[in-house]
């Protein structure tokens, strides 16, 4: 099977850089190059004592959490509206809201920078990053939640109304439980995107750098690179954990509604 060999080779290409991470993270040497020097956990202990990093991580966690919540709320609104009655201009509006998905991030970054700094004269802060991240994460939330909302038979809601529930209680008792897995995976994915986002954060970061901005700073100093490797290892492990959770949530959602698995988040 030639295609299978090719696909596996492709997977290896995809994973090649990531496999190196733990190798150098546990390598007992300051130079990131082969041959390896021996096993060490010193870079991880150094991580534990770098307070600047802790501040950056804390910043990023706050930004990512709030981004996840806001973009998922906006995503629920748009995806729910998308599954409801058509009205003039609906497609256009949905397309416009999805636009950041195909917009170069640097454009989002500089346009917001201009508005915030030059026009409104505001100081950059975590909020400026959150605002931008919500903008770019919302399309992802919508894409994920669209799947969840459109899988729902519209007569389910009508059945609930017919059985005496109000609009709100029909949503709470029927729609919400059915889209909960979608909401969880939207939260997790927006969180992951925001946590990792650098291009925009670099432009909009205020006095407190986010984690990627902090890492960017470290990359310029060869001596700190093993620490970056250790940090990267933890991040990769964390990403895999979050993604696995998101995937489990998604599958549970499919099992719950009895729909066929068509695969993938996007």
């Amino acid at each position: 099977m030639k295609l299978r060999v090719y696909a596996i080779a492709y997977l290896i290409f995809l994973y090649a850089p990531i496999v190196l991470l733990p190798l150098f993270a546990f390598n007992d040497g300051t130079v990131i190059a082969f041959p390896l020097q021996g096993f060490s956990t010193q870079w991880f202990s150094e991580l534990a004592t770098t307070t600047a990093l802790h501040t950056a991580v804390k910043n990023s966690l706050i930004i990512a959490s709030l981004t996840a919540i806001f973009s998922t709320i906006l995503g629920v609104c748009a995806a729910r509206a998308g599954a409801m009655a058509h009205f003039p201009g609906k497609r256009g509006i949905l397309g416009f809201v999805m636009l950041p998905l195909v917009l170069p991030e640097i454009i989002v970054a500089v346009s917001l920078l201009i508005v915030l700094r030059q026009i409104l004269g505001l100081d950059l802060s975590n909020w400026s990053i959150i605002a931008a991240h919500v903008l770019i994460c919302t399309p992802f939330s919508i894409a994920i939640l669209n799947g969840a909302f459109q899988n729902i038979d519209p007569s389910l809601e009508e059945a609930a109304l017919d059985l005496g529930e109000s609009r709100w209680s029909a949503f709470r008792l029927v729609i919400l439980p059915l889209v909960t897995p979608g909401i969880i995976s939207s939260l997790l994915i927006s969180f992951t995107i925001s946590l990792d986002e650098f291009i925009i954060a670099f432009f909009l970061t205020g006095s407190n750098p986010t984690m990627p901005v902090y890492i960017w700073g470290l990359l310029r100093f060869p001596a700190s690179i093993p620490v970056v490797m250790a940090l990267g290892t933890i991040l990769v492990a964390l990403s895999i954990l979050l993604l696995t959770l998101a995937e489990i949530a998604r599958r549970r959602g499919l099992a719950r509604t009895g729909t066929k698995d068509t695969g993938g988040f996007l």
């Binding site: 995503g75 609104c77 609906k90 809201v97 454009i107 989002v108 201009i114 508005v115 919500v134 919508i142």
Partner: peptide, 26 residues
């Protein structure tokens, strides 16, 4: 329809404020 439009307005307004206006500013 009105409820759908109402629901779509927060993401739409957000995109107008943080995407359309900034693009116009550029």
């Amino acid at each position: 329809r009105r409820r759908a439009a109402l629901l779509l307005s927060p993401p739409f307004l957000y995109a107008v404020l943080l995407l359309a206006l900034p693009l116009f500013a550029i």
